[in-house]
Amino acid sequence: MRKTVPITIFVLLSFGLSWLIALPLWLGGGLANPFFTLVALAIMFTPAIAALVVVFFVEKHPDGRSRWRALGLGSVRPVGRFLRYLALALVVPPALILAALLVGAVTGVYPADFVNFSGFQETVDAQLEALGQASVAVPIGILVAAQFINVAIGAVINTIPAFGEELGWRGWLLPKLLPLGVVPAILISGVIWGLWHAPLILLGYNYGAVPGGLALAAMVGMTIVIGAVFSWLRIRSESVWPAALAHGAFNAAVGFSLVFVMAGETFSPLNATILGWTGWLVPLVLVIVLLATGQFRAPATRQSVAPVESVPVAGSE
């Protein structure tokens, strides 16, 4: 069997299932469809389904252990290294999202209020008014600090649906592409991941009224740079779990843009936050540094993700 056949089947299955599940949104209501959240969650599991189908029915594995290793679900030893990358997975994505807001503020594309949190105060007041309450005794600074705790909790909860994606993208697909070199593997997997979002992006998800083609291109740009960070965690830990936790933390932290925005101001997702081009700058610098310092090599103790003899590491020493 040619090496490209499993990858082709995986891509067709993940894309086909995502469009099939999203069909009710296209038939009525779009993002306003009452079942949108349920549909979006279901779509997140399509890469995992595709990966499982390929591993169990397309590829030839000598035993069950080989199958789980192909999915990034093998041994987590050494435990210290595994826990270290889990910790990084919990911290790095929210840090990159906050850095994106800072860069956006400096470049003038994100109207930030990092002192009084006026936009967040406005949101809290509106929510209290809707509940029939005049005000809250807790200072706004305390409420902002509480959002960081919410992100940590949300990261763990979000890891469950994020695992549905990561089992496919970084668990199975990335190692299959690594023989092309690290940089090509990151680029190709990032493009595939971005285009897979088309059923929702073309309905206005994430980018609102931005024309569909431009919104999808921006999504691909974001998934390449963020996917590179997730790929680093996958390769160095030799496990899919840090990538899944990072994905969960990323999804939990995207709401920071509403916490630090200035009251009464708006911004374009094409330019600001992690979704826009200014938000890609810090993760891109991080990825370049990681490449330059050889941090995309699999650990020397075991080469289950990327055998040295078959993986030319493009862009690193």
Rank of each mutant, 00 (worst) to 15 (best):
R2P: 15
V5F: 08
I7M: 07
T8L: 15
F10W: 05
F10A: 00
F15H: 02
L20W: 10
L27R: 15
G28N: 07
A32T: 15
N33H: 14
P34L: 12
F36V: 13
L38W: 12
A40L: 15
I43E: 03
M44P: 01
M44N: 08
A48Q: 01
I49L: 15
V54E: 09
V55S: 06
F56L: 13
K60C: 02
H61V: 04
P62N: 14
W68K: 13
L71M: 04
V76Y: 13
G80A: 11
F82R: 10
F82N: 06
R84K: 14
L86D: 09
A87T: 13
L90N: 09
V91M: 09
V91F: 12
A95F: 11
L96F: 06
I97P: 01
A99P: 06
L101T: 03
V103S: 04
T107A: 14
G108S: 10
Y110E: 05
A112L: 11
D113M: 06
F117G: 03
S118L: 04
S118N: 08
E122C: 02
V124I: 13
Q127F: 07
G132S: 06
S135D: 12
S135F: 12
V136D: 12
V138P: 04
G141M: 00
A145D: 09
A146N: 12
I149H: 00
I149D: 02
A152T: 10
I153N: 00
A155V: 05
V156T: 09
N158K: 07
T159E: 04
E166G: 03
L174N: 01
P179I: 04
G181N: 07
V183S: 05
V183C: 08
P184K: 09
A185D: 03
I186Y: 03
I188V: 14
S189A: 12
S189D: 00
L195T: 13
I201E: 07
N206W: 11
Y207R: 03
A209I: 11
G212I: 11
L216P: 04
M219L: 14
T223I: 08
I226A: 09
V229K: 00
F230W: 12
R234E: 07
V240L: 05
L245S: 10
L245V: 14
H247R: 06
F250T: 05
N251H: 12
G255D: 10
S257C: 11
V259S: 05
V261Y: 02
M262R: 15
E265C: 12
T266Q: 14
F267G: 08
P269K: 05
L270M: 12
N271I: 00
I274S: 13
G279D: 07
L281I: 14
V285D: 05
L286I: 07
V289H: 01
A292T: 12
Q295W: 01
A298C: 09
P299R: 07
S304L: 15
V305F: 05
V305H: 05
V311W: 10
P312K: 09
A314G: 13
A314Q: 14
S316C: 06
E317F: 13
